[in-house]
Design a protein around this nucleic acid. Structure first.
Lengths: 198, 198
DNA sequence: CAAAAGTAAGTAAACATTCATTTACTTACT
DNA sequence: AGTAAGTAAATGAATGTTTACTTACTTTTG
């Protein structure tokens, strides 16, 4: 039996991310993708059921999955609060700096109903997607280290600014001066942490 | 001369927002829109040059423009820091609660390259889009009330969590219990403010 | 040679956009 | 007050193109 050519699978996924980042999800077509990945359209349909299936797998496995791995590196739920949050910030920043194309699809996950639904389904089926972070937050809440809020609010306060700053970082890569320096990032992280400490 | 039917123009825009919110920007087609708005496809092309022109105007005029108005209500740059930020939070929350469909296109503005570019162009051409907020932040920075950071970082820390919470609010409207209450919102707002105070 | 991987060349449906025409109203003249 | 000319608004049907997806065939391996 003829074995799968993994290079082709990889090409399909990475070129898709590139098109999405450059032209937007709304301009990604299967034919365009096949042509750009130097593959017949049918090849994509051997690997994925249909466009929806492809996009969901791209989003969940490729982007969310690899981000989760990267963000959890050297993180554990028993860390001190400031230290743990900082670790997540620096892991995330490094990850997206190295994988710029992933960032855009990640953002689409917050707007596109298709991807949003896929994310929620996955979250429900597998328990919380980022379980260690959830534990970490619960732990510090119960220990009385931080003010009492729903976990969703902790996530919003601690990590939403990070994504905004990463976006700002990318927008400045083409301009003469980068304003999102490591120091700005560290200071911002400290600020959101201080806001939650009791 | 036959007068313009403003209801039709309004229908086109509001139905477009509805389709985007329910099916995603990637599933909005001009023909589908025309049919749903009970209008001939040609009618849309009398009012807008092409699809791109339509989407950009929808995003800038309808969504960003009306949000800017709503968020600035009873806000002025001389307000105290905590008070000013709180005003923006409550204005924003009220606005999106009443205009749920606007929220999704707003989010697309952060992912779609087309809308993102339109936003930046507008921002550059007209000076900062939210000038009073910009002034407000500069003022408090110069007065030494808050830690020194680029304005982009203030915006990220102070307002990115708000959008996350609004999203969370919408996701809980269909569930038995709403976790994003006015109290959670107020406490979160206080937390992000406290993080920036010197 | 069995069998899955891969392909080139399709398909019908949906796409953005345009054409030729009709509609609805104002205005200027009776 | 009645009406016909003038005009922008609005349209339904059609344009050629692109879409997601398939069919019928070839290649590449164990």
């Amino acid at each position: 039996m003829r074995p799968k050519n993994l290079e082709k699978e990889e090409a399909i996924r990475s070129i898709a991310l590139q098109i999405i980042a450059e032209e937007g999800l709304e301009n990604l077509s299967m034919q365009k993708l096949a042509k750009a990945a130097n593959v017949s359209p049918r090849t994509i349909y051997i690997k994925y059921e249909n466009k929806e299936d492809f996009l969901i797998k791209l989003f969940i496995d490729e982007v969310l999955g690899s981000y989760e791995k990267a963000v959890m590196e050297k993180f554990n739920p028993d860390m001190g609060f400031a230290e743990g949050v900082k670790k997540i910030w620096t892991n995330s920043f490094r990850y997206f700096k190295e994988n710029r194309h992933y960032y855009v699809l990640m953002q689409y996950g917050k707007s596109s109903p298709l991807l949003n639904k896929a994310y929620q389904d996955r979250d429900i089926k597998e328990g919380d997607f980022f379980t260690p972070i959830h534990q970490f937050l619960q732990l510090h809440m119960k220990a009385g280290n931080i003010i009492k809020l729903p976990v969703a609010a902790y996530r919003a306060i601690l990590f939403a600014p990070l994504f905004d700053l990463i976006n700002e970082y990318f927008e400045h890569t083409t301009r003469p001066k980068q304003i999102i320096t490591d120091k700005v990032l560290a200071d911002s992280c400290e600020a959101v942490v201080n806001g939650l400490l009791v």
